[in-house]
Write a protein that binds this DNA or RNA. Structure first.
Length: 541
RNA sequence: GCGGGUGUAGCUCAGUGGUAGAGCGCCACGUUGCCAACGUGGCUGUCGUGGGUUCGAGCCCCAUCACCCGCUCCA
């Protein structure tokens, strides 16, 4: 496992039809990927396990271990393009929508509004000296930069004639007299260019800005804006969760590491609504529950970790966030990549969609003001509070958000499953075997059915078994070549069980069932095969 | 975004300016008696893409795209 090279896995994924580069025949498209015949089944299984374990299989009446009370779960499937105001109130518009300037000299890129500077005159030249402030004292940093630029010693500080206060680069219309934060010469900054991390599109035939809309950068907002609809239509009572799976789009600057950071990706998100007093306990519950989910589906404990964010790392609205991370093989030893984030979001989201985009002010969230003193991004004005019929209490629910990446999970399961071990060849000599040890619930093909040889009525019996099993399972029939080769092919596809019809089947109607991982075989009766598979594929508690 | 590397058959790769190759795989037929069998036959190429140099380019030059590694960034 430690020796797994990422390119070996990428090669297997291509060779066996798990993953292809998007638009490959045209040279590929950076950040986009296609799932092949086996990959689509694997990813569907990942999503179906999640949906089943979190939503349809959820027991509303049971108090799960670690949960404060019983709770309900329900689902939703929202549109990818939503009203543009959704993204303004959620904060994505301001956060993901930046103007950037590049420095032709240092090759660095800065956010236009983050560059700070001050006009200064010396030796007959007037210059806007800028820095990307690293300390609370940008003035000192600016002094150093200015002295160096004018080639002055510290004792000649008085030759610098400062003009006005420290201001943002956004106040400077022309960059020809600007000294970039890492430049030695003037005028190396490009004009500010719009960088949008959200994909922009246009609704309707007209392509004017009034029709501008965005592909969603997360599925979560669809849940928040439908919160009231779900409460009003489904009789759910707090505490409850709404789950949604679906595509999201982020225009990443640097897509990297196979499917890990893609521009089009699929999320599996839950927004769990609860009473503010219980939110801390629910946060803990979901964090632990979600961590166990990955463990149960086969990710190794030593490669999977639950990491609480430090206080400084927390978003402005969050009172607690944990990441579930996996030690992907493309990362340096000791580093982990995020699979899922579980965030305590408080009442930030629902309030944002009521009141408008919020910002933190001390310990409180307040509506962000524009320069005109009005709300910067106006909310819907709808009442998204919850009324508890039993306690007669009205409140804005708090939200716990377990947000997972379906493609990242799929990739982690593939990385974990990819193993080389040793199996005997036809002479009993140990040879290397490539095997995908996927959890049976995730395996694209659940069982393969083989006649041991293509004669004596074995194929006919095998075909009957195949047809019978096909009704309830994804199974695969193969009668070509030696049986050993067929076993190995299934090993590479991750198929957990192989059923072989042999001479003895003709006598007593038993078949061998071969286990992918142990290579062990045992005989079971033909009539019991479906039942046996059913129990082997059953999720265990 | 910057720097370095790579791109030839489905996969892994050889091919230093003169007729595009190997191994594996895949397909067919025969054989088959439980872990990558054997025999026979067959399939597979815009040499990443575009342009240039040359009598002639997979090979040299320029551009571009994609992937990998390092830095940078990352909701």
């Amino acid at each position: 496992m430690d020796t797994l090279k990422m390119d070996e896995l990428v090669s297997l994924c291509k060779r066996r039809g798990f993953l292809f580069q998007s638009s490959e025949i045209y040279g590929g498209l950076n950040g986009f990927w296609d799932y092949g015949p086996l990959g689509v089944e694997l990813k569907r299984n990942v999503k179906e396990c999640w949906w089943r374990d979190m939503v349809t299989g959820h027991d509303d009446l049971l108090v799960y271990p670690g949960a404060p009370t019983a709770y309900e779960m329900t689902g939703l499937d929202c549109s990818i393009i939503m009203h543009p105001q959704v993204w303004k109130c959620s904060g994505h518009y301001d956060l993901f929508h930046d103007f950037m300037v590049d420095c032709r000299e240092s090759k660095k890129r800065y956010r236009h509004d983050q560059v700070q500077g001050r006009w200064v005159e010396a030796k007959g030249k007037r210059v806007f000296v800028s820095v990307l402030p690293e300390t609370d004292e940008p003035c000192l940093e600016l002094e150093q930069r200015a002295l160096k630029f004018f080639n002055l010693r510290a004792k000649h500080l008085d030759q610098l004639k400062w003009e006005g206060p420290v201001v943002s680069l956004t106040t400077v219309p022309d960059f020809s007299a600007v000294l970039g934060p890492d430049a030695k010469e003037l005028g190396t900054l490009t004009p500010p260019r719009e960088f949008n991390l959200m994909f922009k599109t246009y609704v309707g035939a007209l392509s004017g800005e009034e029709g501008a809309a965005f592909l969603r950068p997360e599925t979560a907002q669809g849940i928040f804006v439908n919160f009231k609809n779900v409460v009003d239509s489904s009789r759910v009572r707090i505490p409850f969760g709404i789950a949604q799976m679906g595509k999201s789009f982020r225009n990443e600057i640097t897509p990297r590491n196979f499917t890990f950071r893609s521009r089009e990706f699929e999320q599996m998100e839950i927004e769990f609504f609860c009473h503010p007093n219980q939110s801390a306990a629910w946060y803990q519950y979901w964090r632990d529950r979600r961590y166990r989910w990955y463990l149960e589906l086969g990710l190794a404990g030593e490669r999977l970790r639950l990491r609480e964010h430090h206080k400084e790392e927390l978003s402005h609205y969050s009172c607690g966030t944990a990441d579930i991370e996996y030690a992907f093989p493309f990362l340096p030893p000791g580093e982990f990549g995020e699979l899922e984030g579980i965030a305590h979001r408080g009442d930030f989201d629902l309030r944002s969609h009521m009141e408008g985009k919020l910002v933190r002010q001390g310990d409180n969230l307040v509506v962000e003001q524009g320069t005109d003193g009005k709300p910067k991004h106006k909310g819907s004005g709808r009442d998204l509070t919850y009324f508890d019929d039993v306690s007669r209490e009205k409140y804005v629910p708090h939200v716990i958000e377990p947000s997972a990446g379906a493609d990242r999970a799929t990739l982690a399961f593939l990385c974990q499953a990819y193993q080389k071990d040793v199996a005997p060849d036809e002479n009993g000599k140990p040879t290397e075997r490539l095997v995908l040890k996927l959890h049976p619930r995730l395996a694209p093909i659940k069982a393969a059915i083989f006649p041991l040889v293509k004669k004596d009525g074995m194929p006919e019996l095998a075909e009957r078994l195949y047809r019978d099993l096909k009704k309830s399972f994804t199974v695969f029939y193969d009668d070509k070549g030696a049986v050993g080769r067929r076993y190995r092919r299934q090993d590479e596809a991750g198929t957990p069980y192989c059923l072989t019809i042999d001479g003895q089947t003709l006598e007593d109607r038993t078949v061998t069932i071969r286990d992918r991982d142990s290579l062990a075989q045992r005989r079971i009766h033909l009539d019991k095969v479906a039942e046996e598979l059913q129990s082997l594929l059953q999720p265990r508690d």
